[in-house]
Design a protein around this nucleic acid. Structure first.
Lengths: 160, 160
DNA sequence: TAGATAAATGTTATATTATAACAAAATTAA
DNA sequence: TTAATTTTGTTATAATATAACATTTATCTA
């Protein structure tokens, strides 16, 4: 969990972050009277293990490996939904993929930067875009519940 | 086509807009040496006929009705891809749906406002969010190619 | 214009993503 | 410790999307 960071690359995520994320998830579940079951914990660990967007069926496969048994799609989708609802994971719509949320307690929203070359995804938490959006929503009297901002292009490492 | 408008609701789209959009599509195709074939024209008309996001299979069904014959998925997906590539249509990722682009010649990008109550989608073209985003991209040396901004909530008509 | 080339469309099959519906097990409450 | 609730298991299938190849149509070139 990276409460202060504004930018998150998967390269910078390590075991410590994962452990902190799990701790935070446990805490949040306690607080919201939700159960951080063994199955959910395993899915959560998978979401963080290399901190890249994973498709549901990729998660399914990894879960199956870890537990040594066949896992069916609903099992995976239910766990994902659980975390997305709690704000502990996000769906990247344009990839049909899921990723752990590195700023779970932030009020800010996220921008996903998707590199079309190396396929890496970075996540930015920013106030300025949020403010611009909020202003527009206010003008239009649109009650914002959730926003998805995904940008595609070439990351700094892939462009000379 | 609404070159100056900043906000587009489906209610405000009428036959004239559709005709203008078709004219513009014809022109752009000519310019880019692409063919605005009969099939593509029909798909384009469908995308504009009630100016709401349509799933590929909904388009398939309408196309089938219009042409009085069975249409297979690739036919639809190819036409959609053609228009998306030309910037004449957009995919709304969080809905797996497609919609005609009302600002085809604008350099700006679009924000889709999706009402979770009435399911209507409005489209906003705005500079301020773009500028904020551009600033962030510059800082991160990320070469932006395409952005998807989709917000979900309750529109003004649905909230008292 | 005839034949060659390229582009668009048709067709079949299948991959990928996601959910509905109901059963069994585990947890929590009464 | 039974009843109620929640979670997980299971089966089946829905919804979205693409690969691969065949045919047709349009365009180019000799």
């Amino acid at each position: 969990m990276l409460t202060n960071a504004k930018l998150v690359f998967n390269k910078n995520i390590n075991q410590k972050h994962t452990e902190a994320a799990i701790k935070h998830a446990e805490y949040l579940c306690l607080q919201k009277q939700q159960k951080f079951t063994s199955l959910r914990r395993t899915v959560f660990e998978i979401l963080w293990e290399d901190y890249q967007p994973l498709g549901a069926y990729e998660i399914k496969q990894r879960l199956s490996m870890r537990l040594g048994k066949k896992i069916d799609p609903p099992t995976v989708y239910r766990a994902i939904e659980f975390f997305v609802d709690l704000g502990l994971a996000n769906k990247i719509e344009s990839l049909n993929a899921y990723i752990g949320c590195p700023f779970p307690s932030s009020q800010r929203s996220y921008i996903f930067l998707i590199c079309e070359n190396c396929k890496n995804v970075a996540e930015v938490s920013t106030g300025s875009v949020d403010n611009s959006l909020a202003l527009i929503m206010e003008k239009l009297k649109f009650k914002l519940r959730k926003q998805h901002i995904e940008v595609k292009g070439i990351c700094s490492k892939c462009s000379p």
